[in-house]
């Protein structure tokens, strides 16, 4: 075992980290004003509040503007393939369940090309946190329609307006079995920090879909567009245990758009809890390799 809990706990009390301790090796190369800055700083604050250390965290991303996240954040990171962050992260989390695994990416990456994995991660309830920086556009490929682009939206790939209905990540996650579903807004970093803290502490698959405006390519869903519309769900006496109410509130879209925690199931066992192989012996990545003599004997007996 590499983790030495007693020593770590002692260190934790003397070395309280600051947000800047979670700055990555390079500064973000996002466009000035990009919503992703707010997500980065909120996650840094959340990690400080949760007294996490960089080496205890693994951030995993796919491809896209927001998927450059791990390079800007000081923790272990995997910057993987387009749409595949979730299965990469699942493998890592199951192989070392002591890591705090945070997946970061965009709406195209997660709900488009990675949509299949999103569905199955939700029902699988692996203990990881998925932050989607949802800007309703493909940014890194310079502005095409995304799965969350609104009907009629004009982009470079839909110059006459999109003919497709957008996906609602919140209802999709709830229907697929996610146990923590929230919507954040990057212009409310305090609220987002709180949601991220709750999501990371939640045992199971947590989705935080964040309105993270693209100031360069999305001229429709701008800060000015969101500002008069976004309302805090917590002001509405919403019962986040009620999945029907959660879906209803998530579908409200127009003059009012709610953000906050829509849904949570606190006590559903995670895949990590249910998997007997993880019952004892610590993370499988640090276990002894090879078969014991008795195991080999049993295998041979079964073949004879």
């Amino acid at each position: 075992m590499v983790t030495d809990t007693a020593v770590q706990e002692a260190e934790r009390t003397v070395t309280k980290l600051k947000a800047k301790d979670f700055n990555g090796k390079v500064d973000p190369d996002w466009c000035p004003g990009c919503g992703d800055f707010g997500v980065l700083s909120s996650l840094q604050k959340a990690c400080v509040d949760l007294e996490l250390h960089p080496h205890e965290i693994l951030t995993v991303s796919g491809i896209g503007c927001s998927s450059n996240f791990p390079g800007f954040f000081n923790s272990y990171g995997m910057h993987t393939l387009h749409g595949r962050a979730l299965p990469f992260a699942t493998g890592a989390k199951l192989a070392n369940h002591e890591l705090t695994v945070i997946v970061t990416g965009g709406d195209g990456d997660g709900y488009g090309i990675g949509g299949n994995h999103f569905t199955h991660l939700a029902r699988r309830n692996v203990d990881l946190t998925y932050i989607v920086m949802n800007n309703q556009i493909y940014g890194l490929t310079v502005g095409q329609t995304s799965p969350t682009s609104e009907f009629g939206m004009k982009t470079k790939s839909t110059p006459f307006g999109s003919l497709e209905t957008p996906l609602n990540p919140i209802t999709a996650a709830i229907m697929n079995g996610a146990t923590f579903v929230a919507r954040g807004y990057s212009a409310d970093p305090k609220g987002l920090t709180d949601l991220l803290c709750q999501a990371i502490q939640h045992k199971g698959f947590s989705l935080v879909d964040v309105f993270s405006p693209c100031v360069t390519f999305n001229k429709d869903n701008t800060y000015d567009w969101f500002k008069p519309r976004v309302k805090k769900l917590e002001d509405e006496e919403h019962d986040f245990h009620d999945w029907k109410a959660a879906c209803e509130q998530a579908l409200v879209w127009g003059e009012k758009i709610y953000y906050g925690k829509f849904f949570q199931v606190e006590k559903k066992p995670t895949l990590n809890d249910l998997e007997p192989v993880l019952n004892e012996g610590g993370p499988i990545c640090f276990r002894e390799l090879g078969l014991a003599k008795e195991q080999a004997k049993k295998l041979l007996e079964d073949m004879m």
Binding site: G91, A95, I284, C285
Partner: peptide, 26 residues
């Protein structure tokens, strides 16, 4: 034998999940 076995939604998920596990030294 203490082997984590997962049936995944497709082979893209299979390969990437295996590599994710392998990234931890497994």
């Amino acid at each position: 034998l203490g082997i984590m076995v997962r049936q995944v939604e497709d082979e893209i998920g299979v390969a990437t999940m295996a590599i994710g596990a392998a990234a931890t030294g497994t």
